[in-house]
């Protein structure tokens, strides 16, 4: 007796693609008519994954991954300067005045400089980069950023020989950022990178997304994006970039040193003390995905950490 192996059957042989795609329409219609248990309704396109409950969990990076919608990227933000709820930034970030805006580059560099946003745009050509963003809270997005490699800016500043770390500061102005009146974190928000991490070509200063200028709630007018680290490392609304010779303290590390380390590289095998980092939920999807080491950018960045104990240096 011959038994078909799963692989022998092309999916096209089983269900015609149009019917397969039409399924969703059927469910939506049925749900609206009340034929389907409401909890099982698949409102959005991604919801088809619902049916795959008992199939293997997909990895977080797949070639055909869809971009997270502009609506979701701009209405699900951790930006405590505008409140600790993820819907707060979209409501209150309008209070932030992003023009005029200055970014100071200072510290251990040969050419310190204060940029206006226009200077940044004029000096550094903008390019589009699609990156996965993995939040430390185990959700993720796929975001089409616009920006430029931080390395360009750092090279122009010309770090001195003893510069080993880069420190980033968010604007501190409780008038414009009401969340700073509440001492949930040490304000202003501070972040840091090792110089080689900051010089890595994947590390960008983002000034836009979806081809538009950055919405305030996403860190306007300029923010950092480090795709292989948890999202909180990608500091928003930057006013200062300082090169220093020692490892800086960062806001989250100061708040809970046992939970948020300086490196905070995405790592499925090093759990947050309170929850697992092995899986994540892509915003807009119902099912889980497997989190990948360095958020799937291991080929590009693993060499930065050769020989380092990633569990210790979390």
């Amino acid at each position: 007796m011959s038994i078909h192996k799963r692989d022998d059957i092309l999916s096209s042989e089983i269900t015609d693609e149009n019917i397969y795609l039409g399924r969703r329409e059927f469910f939506c219609k049925a749900a609206k008519l009340g034929f389907i248990v409401p909890g099982l309704k698949f409102g959005t396109a991604e919801a088809a994954g619902f049916l795959n409950l008992f199939s293997p969990i997909k990895p977080s990076a797949l070639p055909d991954d869809k971009l997270t919608s502009f609506q979701n990227i701009t209405h699900y933000n951790n930006f405590y300067e505008f409140g600790t709820s993820k819907s707060d930034p979209a409501k209150y970030a309008g209070m932030l005045k992003t023009s005029p805006w200055e970014v100071k580059v200072e510290g251990l560099v040969r050419y310190p400089r204060t940029y206006s946003i226009d200077d940044l745009f004029k000096t550094y050509p903008q390019e589009d980069r699609i990156y996965r963003l993995r939040c430390v809270e185990a959700w993720s997005m796929v975001i089409p950023w616009r920006g430029f490699s931080l390395a360009h800016l750092l090279k122009k500043a010309d770090p001195l020989g003893n510069a080993r770390f880069v420190e980033f500061w968010t604007l501190h102005d409780p008038q414009q950022m009401p969340g700073q009146n509440i001492p949930v974190l040490e304000w202003p928000y501070r972040e840091g990178l090792r110089l080689d991490e900051a010089m890595h070509p994947l590390t960008i200063l983002a000034t836009g997304l979806y081809g538009k200028s950055l919405p305030n709630q996403d860190g306007a007018p300029v923010r950092l994006v480090i795709p292989w680290k948890y999202g909180f490392k990608s500091i928003k609304s930057i006013v200062k970039i300082r090169l220093i010779d020692h490892m800086p303290r960062t806001s989250w590390e100061l708040a809970a040193p046992n939970e948020y380390g300086f490196y905070s590289n995405v790592n499925p095998s090093v759990n947050h003390p309170r929850w697992s980092q092995a899986t994540e939920r892509r915003i807009g999807e119902w099912d889980l995905r497997k989190t990948l080491l360095f958020n799937g950018y291991a080929n590009e960045v693993a060499s930065l950490y050769t020989g380092m104990n990633l569990r210790k240096n979390f």
């Binding site: 749900a31 609206k32 409401p38 909890g39 309704k41 409102g43 959005t44 609506q71 979701n72 209405h75 699900y76 993820k86 819907s87 959700w139 939920r281 915003i283 807009g284 119902w286």
Partner: peptide, 16 residues
Amino acid sequence: LVLLGLFDGLGPNPVS
């Protein structure tokens, strides 16, 4: 919750 689920009102992270 049922109504929000039916009309896509559960926000960007419905499970949460």
